[in-house]
């Protein structure tokens, strides 16, 4: 009983365990990176609702408002980004431009999500 506890709480076991977990997550990130597909349309969700579907082909800049809060969204060279927001953490602004379906831009304080739709998904939607 005592020896099982010693093994369970040994540093080595947990270093290996956490390392394996870390390596698995790195692998998952790499795999996701390799299967990501660029898209030409983006869907913008605000407050859990789809508020706008935009094409990434045309450069554009517009504001999405949610109550008193706002996010200014910019489309440039086929990429979409949040260029200004009044949220506290500014994570959405710092995330920069995206043009693929891997990581959506999320602004939790203003409840905004921007997802780029990949071409395959578009075909599915049409069928």
């Amino acid at each position: 009983m005592k020896s099982t506890k010693r093994i369970f709480t040994s540093n080595t076991l947990w270093i290996i365990l956490f390392l394996v977990l870390a390596i698995i997550s790195v692998l998952i990130i790499f795999i996701m990176n390799s299967v990501k597909t660029a898209g030409k349309t983006a869907k913008i969700y605000s407050n859990n609702r789809l508020v706008r579907t935009v094409s990434l082909n045309n450069d554009d800049e517009f504001t999405i408002e949610n109550g008193k809060n706002y996010n200014i969204i910019r489309i440039r060279n086929g990429k979409i980004s949040v260029c200004e927001a009044d949220c506290k953490n500014q994570i959405c602004v710092n995330q920069g431009e995206i043009d693929n379906d891997l990581f959506p831009i999320v602004c939790v304080p203003n409840r905004l999500v921007i997802r780029v739709e990949s071409e395959t998904q578009d075909v599915d939607a049409e069928i």
Binding site: Y45, N48, F103, P104, V106, R111, V113
Partner: peptide, 10 residues
Amino acid sequence: ATGTPAISIY
């Protein structure tokens, strides 16, 4: 808060 399960990709 965002109602988007897709962000679990993070």
